[in-house]
Design a protein around this nucleic acid. Structure first.
Length: 987
DNA sequence: ACTCTGCTGAGAGGA
C-alpha cells in the first residue's frame, strides 16, 4: 500500500500519522490490546504511542499505514477505547454513507459496488424514489403549500431532467406521475405534523447530551427552517463523504425547555422499515455534520409514503461500530492486490470480503454476477478462501457458461486494471484539496484560490447553476483550468470542502465562470472559495464494467468471448448481392468511384463480414476518408452504424467530413467537448432547440438517425441498452485498451476496427501492468486472424523520400505513393536563393552558435526562406524538451509554429516536421521512449515534404530502432554533421 | 526514467 500512497503527514485537526510498529498486548492479563508506534513527521522521528482497546484492536492496521486519530492525546499517548477516540484507517479515502450502510449486511457487496458501479442498473422504484426526493426537496423550501407541491410534481415529471432514465427503463411519464401523486397527501401530513402544528404531535424519544451526560428526552419536534438541500459533505477527519437530503433548523420542545439544532433529515420513499441500514446512514450524516457545525447528535428518517418521521440518535456506540466497519471497508478497498511472498515480487489479486452464508439475501443481490465471477476466476485458487458449502453449487451454476480461458482473461485484466489504478491514484486524487493549501497548488496550476462569488447565480438548465467567481485581489494566476474541465468548489476555510462540483464555462482575466450542480448563493457573502481541477478517478470504472459484461451469460457476450478470448475465426459471407439492396447499388458504386483499390477492398470486406474486419490504416492512407465512405455505404444499404473512437477529436474529424455529404447522424457526449461545427448534432443541442420534454419525443430523437457517434467511454448512454446497431466502427482502435474498446461492441452485431499497430499502443503507466500485456489493443490481439485484415497501403501524405524511411523500417515496402504529385512534392521556399547567399556569409557564425554548449536547443529559423510558420511542426518524444523549445519561441515572438509531442501528433501531419530526439549522453540509462519503434514510426511519418531530424548520432545509435534508421540514412547519404536532413529540397 | 484521454457520482429501492 505504501508504494502508491504518498501521504502528507501532519498534526492538528486533520492529523495524519504513519504507523511504524504494531504490537499485540494484553491488559490485565486478558483483555487484548494493540499498541501502535506512530509518527506525524515525515522523517519518522518524534513518535507517539496509540493504544487500541475494547474491540478497536481488531482494526486491520499494519506498519506503513496512514491513520487519522480523533480524541485526546496526553503526554504523547492516544487511548482509543469504548468511551472515546476514533482510529480512522486511510482517512484520505472518503467512503460514502450508503456504502458503509450497505456493508452492514454484506461487505463483499459493498466493495464490489465501489468497483462495479454500473452493475446496479436501476429500477422503476429507484427512479420514482429519486423523483420523489426531488419534488419533496423543492416543495419543502416552499413550506409544502398544497398547490405548489402539485405544480412541482408536474414540472418535475413532465420536465426534461429524468427523461433519459425513463427512456432507459421504458416507462411512461403518466405512470410515473400517478405513482408520485399517491405520495403527495403524505407530504402534507408530514408538514402539518412537523412544520405547521407541532403541538398536536405524539412525543418521541431523543438522546441528547447536556452538561456532559446523555439524557433520553421525550420531545416534540418542530422544523423551523430549511437550510440546505443535498448538502455535500466531505470529512477527511472520519474518512467519510455524503449528501444530506435536507439540512434543517430544528426546535426540540421538551419538558426542560426548547433546544435548537441544525440536523440532517433523510428521506425514504420505500417501505417504512426504520432498518439498521437507514438508521446507519443518518448516524453517519450526524458525524459528517461535525465538519461544518455543532454536533447535531440526532437526525431524522422521513418515510414519504406515510409521512412519518423517526428520530435516530448518533450514539457513541453506533458511531464507533460504523467507523470500525468503515475501516474494514477501507482496508479491502486499499488492499485489492498483494505482493506474492515467494519468488519474484509479483502482484496478485487479493481476496474480497468473504461470501456470506445467506442464499436468500444473495438471490436479489445486484452484484451477484461479479461476486461469483470473482470467486471462480480469482479466489478459487486461494487456499485461504473457503466458501459456505451451500453456496458452492450456486456459484458453479452461475458461472458454468465460462471456460477456463475466460476466467483467466477476466482475472488477468482485473489485475492489470487494478495495478494501473494504483499508479494513477498515487499522483492524482481529491485528497490534495484538503491536504495541500490552495496557494501551493496554484503553483502547479491545478487550483485557483482566494476567490469570491459575484453576481446572481443563474439556473441555466434544471439543476445546473452558473456561478461567477472573482479573484479577491488581482488577476487570476496562470492555471491549467480550461473550459470544459471538471472542477471542485470548496471553501478556503476548514469544513467547507467539496461544496459543489461542475464544469468550467469560461476563464477570463479576473473571473472564472463555472456551471455547478448546486446553487451556492445561500452561503455567506464573504465566503472565500478555491476551485480545484478534478483530476478524475483514473477511470477504471468503465473498463471493469465492460470486463464484467463480457463474462455475462448473454448471446452477445458469448459471441465476443469466442472471438476475442478464444480467437474463433471471423466468418464472411460469399456474395455481396445478399447484403447489397438493389436500390442502393448505384449510390454505392458512386461512392466507390472516389476510392483507391485497397480502400475499395476494405469496403467489400466489411460488407461481407459476419463478425469483424480490421482495417490497417498506414500513415497518410486516408483513414478518415475511408471511414467516411464506409459510413455512407453502410447507411445507403440501410444499416445502422455506431461510430466511435477513443477521443472526441477523432470522432468529430470523421463527422465533419460526413456532414459535407449530408449523411444524418446523432452525436452523443457532452456538447462542451464536441467540435463547434458538430455541436448542432448533439443530443444536448437538439433537446434544447426542439425543447424535448416527453419520453416519446426523446425516443423519436434516438431512433431518428441510423448513424450514432460517441466516444468509447460514452457508451454508458441509455440508448445503448435499448438499441442494437448493425455495425460498429472504432477509429484509433490500436490506441485503445481492450476493456475500453469492448464497450461499444456490446451494442452491435459486428464491428470494424481501424488502426495501425505499428503506431503507438494504448498508454499504460504501471510498468508491471505493461509487462503483463496491458498495452495490447484489441486491434493488435485480433490481427493474428489475417483473413479479417485489410491494409490501406496507398498514401497521400509523404513524398517518396520521406515514405522510404518508414517503408524500410516498418512496412516492408508495402507503402506506395497515391500519385506522382505526392511522390515528387517538395516544400515551397520562394526566397531560397537569397537565403543561400545570406547563409554563405554567416554560415560559420551559425554553425558556431549550434556548437556553443550553452545553446542546448537549436531552432532552425526558416523565416527567411519564406514558408508559413503554420506549415512547420516541431515534435519530440519528451515534454520537457518541448517546454524549452516553446520558451525559446516565445522569446522569438513566434507562436504559429506548432510544438507538440510525438504521441500527440499521431494522426496529424505538416508540410515540414522537425524532430528533436534530445538524447545526448553516454549514460547507461537509456529511457524506454526511444526504444519503441512505434513511436519512431509515428515521428518519421508526419512530414509531407520535408523531414528534419536533430540528434546526436552516437547517443541515438544505442537505441535499436534509431540505429536501424540511422543506418538507412547513412546508406542513402542523408546525414549531415550536426544537422542531418532529407534532401528533398536544398537548404 | 516521464508518453496522457476518457469518465459526474452519492443515493435512488429491494430483501
Amino acid at each position: 500500500v505504501s508504494d502508491c500512497y504518498e501521504p502528507v503527514l501532519q498534526r492538528g485537526l486533520n492529523n495524519r500519522y504513519r504507523v511504524l510498529e504494531v504490537r499485540a498486548a494484553q491488559r490485565n492479563g486478558r483483555e487484548p490490546e494493540k499498541h501502535l508506534t506512530v509518527t506525524p513527521s515525515p522523517s519518522l522521528e518524534d513518535t507517539e504511542l496509540c493504544v487500541l482497546r475494547d474491540g478497536w484492536d481488531s482494526v486491520p492496521v499494519v506498519p506503513g499505514d496512514i491513520i487519522h486519530l480523533e480524541g485526546e492525546c496526553s503526554s504523547g499517548t492516544w487511548i482509543i477505547n469504548e468511551q472515546s477516540g476514533y482510529l480512522v484507517l486511510y482517512p484520505d479515502l472518503l467512503l460514502s454513507g450508503t456504502t458503509i450502510a450497505s456493508s452492514i449486511r454484506c461487505m463483499r457487496r459493498a466493495v464490489l459496488s465501489e468497483k462495479f458501479r454500473r452493475s446496479e442498473s436501476g429500477s422503476r422504484q429507484m427512479l420514482v424514489g429519486t423523483i420523489l426526493h426531488d419534488v419533496f426537496q423543492q416543495a419543502v423550501t416552499n413550506n409544502l403549500a398544497r398547490e405548489k407541491v402539485e405544480e412541482l410534481a408536474n414540472k418535475t415529471v413532465y420536465g426534461q431532467k429524468y427523461l433519459k432514465e425513463m427512456y432507459l427503463l421504458n416507462l411512461k411519464q403518466k405512470e410515473i406521475m400517478q405513482e408520485v401523486e399517491e405520495y403527495l397527501p403524505s407530504f402534507h401530513k408530514w408538514a402539518e405534523d412537523f412544520m405547521h402544528n407541532p403541538a398536536n404531535q405524539n412525543k418521541m424519544q431523543l438522546k441528547l447530551s447536556s452538561n456532559g451526560k446523555v439524557d433520553d428526552l421525550s420531545s416534540r419536534i418542530e422544523i423551523v427552517d430549511i437550510l440546505d438541500i443535498e448538502e455535500t459533505l466531505w470529512s477527511p477527519r472520519f474518512g467519510l463523504k455524503g449528501k444530506v437530503d435536507v439540512t434543517a433548523s430544528v426546535k426540540i420542545h421538551c419538558q426542560s425547555g426548547v433546544q435548537s439544532r441544525i440536523m440532517p433529515l433523510e428521506l425514504k420513499s420505500g417501505k417504512e422499515s426504520n432498518s439498521i441500514e437507514h438508521r446507519s446512514q443518518v448516524i453517519l450524516y450526524t458525524l459528517l455534520n461535525l465538519e461544518r457545525r455543532v454536533d447535531p447528535e440526532v437526525g431524522f428518517l422521513i418515510y414519504l409514503k406515510t409521512g412519518t418521521m423517526y428520530p435516530v440518535s448518533g450514539t457513541r456506540m453506533d458511531r464507533r461500530e460504523l467507523m470500525k466497519l468503515r475501516n474494514q471497508m477501507a482496508f479491502y478497498l486499499m488492499h485489492g492486490t498483494c505482493k506474492s511472498t515467494v519468488g519474484r515480487k509479483q502482484t496478485q489479486l487479493a481476496a474480497l470480503p468473504p461470501i456470506i452464508d445467506d442464499s436468500q439475501a444473495c438471490k436479489y443481490c445486484s452484484q451477484l454476477h461479479n461476486c461469483f465471477l470473482y470467486s471462480r476466476a480469482v479466489e478459487q485458487k486461494m487456499a485461504s478462501v473457503s466458501l459456505p458449502p451451500a453456496m458452492v453449487p450456486v456459484i458453479e451454476k452461475e458461472t458454468q457458461h465460462l471456460k477456463p480461458s475466460h476466467l483467466e482473461y477476466f482475472s488477468l485484466w482485473y489485475l492489470m486494471l487494478s495495478l494501473e489504478l494504483q499508479s494513477g491514484e498515487s499522483k492524482k486524487g481529491s485528497k490534495n484539496i484538503w491536504m495541500i493549501p490552495s496557494l501551493e497548488r496554484e503553483k502547479a496550476g491545478d487550483c485557483v484560490g482566494n476567490m469570491i462569488r459575484i453576481g446572481q447565480v443563474q439556473e441555466i438548465y434544471e439543476g445546473q447553476y452558473l456561478h461567477c467567481f472573482q479573484r479577491k485581489n488581482g488577476a487570476i494566476p496562470i492555471t491549467n483550468l480550461l473550459v470544459g474541465d471538471r472542477v471542485v468548489v470548496s471553501g478556503e476555510e476548514n469544513g467547507l470542502l467539496g461544496l459543489a462540483t461542475g464544469y468550467v464555462r469560461e476563464v477570463a482575466v479576473s473571473n472564472i465562470y463555472c456551471l455547478l450542480g448546486r446553487n451556492l448563493s445561500k452561503l455567506a457573502k464573504n465566503t472565500v472559495f478555491r476551485l480545484d481541477h478534478e483530476e478524475g478517478n483514473c477511470g477504471i470504472g468503465v473498463p471493469l464494467e465492460n470486463l464484467s459484461k463480457l463474462m455475462e451469460d448473454t448471446p452477445v457476450s458469448e459471441k465476443l468471448r469466442n472471438l476475442i478470448i478464444d480467437f474463433r475465426k471471423p466468418c464472411f459471407i460469399q456474395h455481396l448481392s445478399s447484403v447489397l439492396p438493389p436500390e442502393a447499388k448505384e449510390t454505392v458504386a458512386n461512392i466507390l468511384k472516389g476510392l483507391n483499390k485497397p480502400q475499395k477492398q476494405a469496403m467489400k470486406q466489411v460488407l461481407l463480414s459476419k463478425d469483424y474486419t480490421l482495417i490497417v490504416g498506414m500513415p497518410g492512407t486516408g483513414k478518415t476518408t475511408t471511414i467516411c465512405a464506409l459510413v455512407r455505404i453502410l447507411s445507403a444499404c440501410g444499416f445502422s452504424v455506431l461510430l466511435t473512437s477513443f477521443t472526441h477529436t477523432a470522432v468529430d474529424n470523421i463527422l465533419l467530413k460526413l456532414a459535407k455529404f449530408k449523411v444524418g447522424f446523432l452525436r452523443l457526449g457532452r456538447a462542451q467537448k464536441v467540435h463547434p461545427d458538430i455541436q448542432k448534432f448533439t443530443e444536448e443541442e437538439i433537446c434544447r432547440s426542439k425543447s424535448i420534454k416527453s419520453v416519446t419525443d426523446l425516443e423519436e430523437l434516438y431512433n431518428s438517425q441510423p448513424v450514432v457517434a460517441t466516444s468509447c467511454m460514452g457508451v454508458n448512454h441509455p440508448i445503448f441498452v435499448r438499441k442494437q446497431f448493425d455495425f460498429c466502427i472504432v477509429d484509433e482502435a490500436s490506441q485503445i485498451s481492450q476493456p475500453i474498446c469492448l464497450g461499444p461492441l456490446f451494442s452491435s452485431k459486428r464491428f470494424v476496427l481501424v488502426g495501425d499497430h505499428q503506431q503507438l499502443p494504448p498508454l499504460v503507466q504501471n510498468a508491471e501492468a505493461r509487462d503483463l500485456g496491458m498495452s495490447e489493443s484489441l486491434f493488435k490481439r485480433l490481427e493474428q486472424n489475417q483473413n479479417a485484415v485489410v491494409q490501406l497501403t496507398v498514401q497521400y501524405r509523404m513524398n517518396s523520400k520521406i515514405m522510404s524511411l518508414s517503408n524500410t523500417l516498418v512496412y516492408e515496402g508495402k507503402l506506395e505513393c497515391g500519385s506522382e504529385k505526392v511522390s515528387k512534392a517538395t516544400v515551397n521556399l520562394p526566397n531560397l536563393k537569397q537565403l543561400k547567399l545570406d547563409l554563405a556569409d554567416s554560415s560559420k557564425m551559425w554553425l558556431k552558435e549550434v556548437l556553443e554548449p550553452d545553446t542546448p536547443v537549436c531552432f532552425l529559423n526558416t523565416e527567411k526562406a519564406g514558408c508559413k510558420p503554420s506549415d512547420i511542426g516541431i515534435i519530440s518524444p519528451y515534454r520537457h524538451q518541448l517546454k524549452t523549445i516553446t520558451d525559446l519561441m516565445v522569446r522569438l515572438k513566434e507562436n504559429r509554429v506548432e510544438v507538440n509531442t510525438v504521441d500527440k501528433y499521431q494522426g496529424r501531419d505538416k508540410s515540414i516536421i522537425i524532430v528533436s530526439f534530445v538524447r545526448n549522453s553516454h549514460d547507461e540509462n537509456l529511457g524506454s521512449l526511444l526504444k519503441d519503434w512505434r513511436r519512431l514510426n509515428v515521428a518519421i511519418t508526419r512530414a509531407k515534404h520535408k523531414l528534419i531530424m536533430v540528434g546526436c548520432v552516437p547517443s541515438l545509435c544505442r537505441y535499436p530502432p534509431l540505429e536501424k534508421l540511422l543506418c538507412h540514412l547513412q546508406s542513402e547519404a542523408m546525414i549531415s554533421f550536426f544537422l542531418f536532413h532529407i534532401k528533398c529540397s536544398i537548404l
